[in-house]
Design a binder for these strands. Structure first.
Lengths: 147, 147
DNA sequence: GTATGTGCAAATGATTTGCGTGCTT
DNA sequence: AAGCACGCAAATCATTTGCACATAC
């Protein structure tokens, strides 16, 4: 049995090396948004004979094949998640904990398209992230906030 | 007479060097979203005795003082624009020409807030960019966008 | 067997920083 | 005068790449 990602690679006729299999597995098993270093560590646990250069190359290959989606959450390194595996969604980054919350909104998708059309463009890519702090986190003692 | 940015610096009690004044001027005169290299070039034209290290330091200083807004349009370098100078807006990047189109939408702002509240967060930052191609531009984009 | 992938280390490119000197307050 | 600010070059950091060797098909 192989992973979803491995299957996609096979479908696309990629040459499947042990490294790619292992990286595919590491990614398929991830439910978060690991950066390359984390993918490297997870893959290394499955098979230590992997170099980080290969992880960079593979992650890039997968991204170009639309198997992975690359994100940039503002911390300077790229983060990845399996593409198309779930519904179209966006991310809200909890600035207190670093946690990434996924959300989706058909209303939002419609509005985006409407805005683009009004400007005379067809959307072919986008980036939408919200950065927030939990409400009732103790950050705003009483009514001191100035929303 | 000094620029809007220079005035802000003075208000904040910053030590005003000739370099800062010149960088402030270069930025105030810009209506686009220059990267550091461009700010450096524009500032150098006003006064050549400036090093790019100073531009990096100054642009960072201004950003931390909320005088500038930093953007990342996916080309690997940071781009800047004067903060709060105009209404809150977002960017649509024309992938054919690289042109950056600004847009705003109160509907979008409201929706963002609504989404955040439903998730239990208060938005303290965000990033929203659309990447598009002009409608009626002829052929399809090469990158096989499937967003 | 041949094209392609991999490991390693060196190269990049953007940005930051240590240090000695110069300028603002 | 004292403390930042500056210029320069070296240092970082994430990522890419050249090269010699290994491997999938």
């Amino acid at each position: 049995m192989h992973t979803r990602i491995e299957q996609l690679c096979l479908d696309k006729g990629m040459k499947m090396t042990e490294q790619r299999r292992v990286i595919a597995r590491a990614l398929s098993e991830s439910t978060d948004h690991p950066d390359v270093e984390q993918v490297y560590q997870r893959a290394s646990e499955l098979d230590p004979r992997i170099s980080i250069a290969t992880v960079y190359r593979t992650v890039r290959l997968f991204e170009e094949a639309n198997i992975l989606e690359r994100h940039d959450f503002g911390d300077g390194r790229a983060r990845y998640e399996e593409a198309g595996h779930r519904d179209h969604h966006h991310h809200l980054i909890n600035l207190r904990s670093g946690e990434v919350v996924e959300f989706e909104s058909e209303e939002l998708e419609a509005l985006k398209r409407k805005i683009a059309v009004e400007l005379g463009y067809k959307i072919v890519g986008e980036r939408l992230e919200l950065y927030g702090i939990p409400i009732d986190d103790g950050d705003e003692p009483k009514g001191a906030g100035q929303n």
